[in-house]
Design a binder for these strands. Sequence first.
DNA 1: TATCCAAATTGGATCGTTCAAGATGGCGAG
DNA 2: CTCGCCATCTTGAACGATCCAATTTGGATA
Lengths: 330, 330
Amino acid sequence: MAEKVTIATVARHAHVSRQTVSNVINAPHIVREETRQRVQEAISVLGYRANQAARQMRTGRSQLIAVRIEPTRDGINGSVLDRFLHGLTEAAETAGYRTLLYTAADDQQEIATYDDLLSAYDLDAFVLTGTDHGDPRTAWLAERGVAFVTFGRPWDDPTAHPWVDVDGAAGTARATAHLLTRGHRRIGFLGWPAGSGVGDDRRAGWRETLRAAGIDPTDLDRATEDGVAEGERLMRDLLVAAEPPTAVVCASDSLALGAMQAVRGAEPAVAVIGFDDTPVAAAIGLTSVSQPLAEAAASCVDLLTAVLDGDQQTPAPVLLQPSLALRHTA
Amino acid sequence: MAEKVTIATVARHAHVSRQTVSNVINAPHIVREETRQRVQEAISVLGYRANQAARQMRTGRSQLIAVRIEPTRDGINGSVLDRFLHGLTEAAETAGYRTLLYTAADDQQEIATYDDLLSAYDLDAFVLTGTDHGDPRTAWLAERGVAFVTFGRPWDDPTAHPWVDVDGAAGTARATAHLLTRGHRRIGFLGWPAGSGVGDDRRAGWRETLRAAGIDPTDLDRATEDGVAEGERLMRDLLVAAEPPTAVVCASDSLALGAMQAVRGAEPAVAVIGFDDTPVAAAIGLTSVSQPLAEAAASCVDLLTAVLDGDQQTPAPVLLQPSLALRHTA
DNA sequence: TATCCAAATTGGATCGTTCAAGATGGCGAG
DNA sequence: CTCGCCATCTTGAACGATCCAATTTGGATA
């Protein structure tokens, strides 16, 4: 293995001092152009790369961002976070950061991990996914002045910290509007029990769109835990109503898949629209609301760099618009 | 924010020297029991955590493992690597390592990233997924004495480096055997063009099992690129043969999904078995060969720790057995 | 030509840890 | 009683970068 190339090696090679090399890297403007080029050449000739550990010891910054990876959850919806993770890694890389993964069983353990990562690895920032009402994690981080962004709104106070989110209500609204233009009037909704920010948001988009069209959403709304079997059960329940729906909007592809199974072979066909545009939806031709996950991830990195570069303490949140991936179930 | 707790803080608090604290952490056996306990107590009282950057500067080890995350590939099969990643992160964590992500467009760029990660972050090891014949990446790493494990066999030389893999041939063999016990005799195979290690392996399991049962596999074999549409096309092609198959084993769930679409409504039903047990398979009730991904990830970490702790240069490879997730397509 | 100022460069200290070598004290053998 | 040995603990130096203060250089000015 070739011997280690340090900043001193570069300095010798370019006939300058260590500090000048450091300046070329961190503050090029204070170095004379001619010197700068000579050093740059030495750097590339020798293949020099600053040792992060040494830099970090002086500066306290590691160029590392941490993201939690959840234990393989629901097989269908789990892919959403994975796609977000892909986008995040790419965006972070172009911004000069690397992505570190960690796991945690619950909020308390996650906070312990923050502590560990911060003191052991000097992490620069955290990206949290899926915050809920009164999240202890964001409070802990904010209290200690740690930089972080959440993918998902803080439902209590939208100005509490930087966040990126996708407008779920707009998504279900778009889905509902699409069904309305196709002539559907009785459009049901399968969602989650009230109380979760995300679930309530998605339900609201459907409800308000129906109301705006002069349709009473009451009796067309069903809620339960997420899952295919649950979706099927809810849909059957909707179908036996006095005036069964001719279409249904769902809060997830899991629920939508269940709904599809419940209406299989029905005449006339019942339209179904899911949420998240998962691979399952694409595979079986399920129309679904699609979140711009790569864009969301890039926005997270943008906000983080804004915070880390000290430009702003709390950059403006980003709310992205979903689109409708049209397939043949609606 | 509380002031930083360093090894010196602990030393003062326990009335010993820095080095003794270091010894308590790294070589407890050379410290007197009484002293050890006193130091340990100081550590937990102060909440001390060794600073990785500083440690790394002396030891050259970072307790960091790197894994590549691919740009969101095929929506259906992509989840396999994601599930592996989940398992890997968990296993690495319990072994005292953290997982770092990186992306790369091609092999050459990936090698450049190795170089970067090694010199900038002093990475301890790499986990590679999906190696192919004559992989330049493994050669590069081996040449420099970098520790790494591949998830996937080195098809050229099984002793080239440590690896973990799932026995794909055993998987398709098991699927084929299952179909045979269900009375099927003409069992087709949809796979990838010859040349890819994984694809050839999966095909071999099916072929040899048929041969062992006295059935000639010729004419029952089809190959193409992966994808749902391709699977459907291949299956239609198989069906118009002189003696069409009554069942088919596929090299992926994508192909299997295509096959299912091709035989939809056929009487008698044509049995279909996929490979990878993806969420899509679970969602639509497709019987599929299931890889023990969490176990594979854990094995990777085991091999890595064996290499990193210097126990062995090339620990014995691990070949895991897949199982058959029975659902209602076979 | 001497003086001064700003820009560019230099050397030394420092971050927190581990390594290498040295100091201390107790104990048994000679 | 003294020596050497072992177990235990302490001291000084080093890893590779950046920060700080001091110094040199080049060019403009008097």
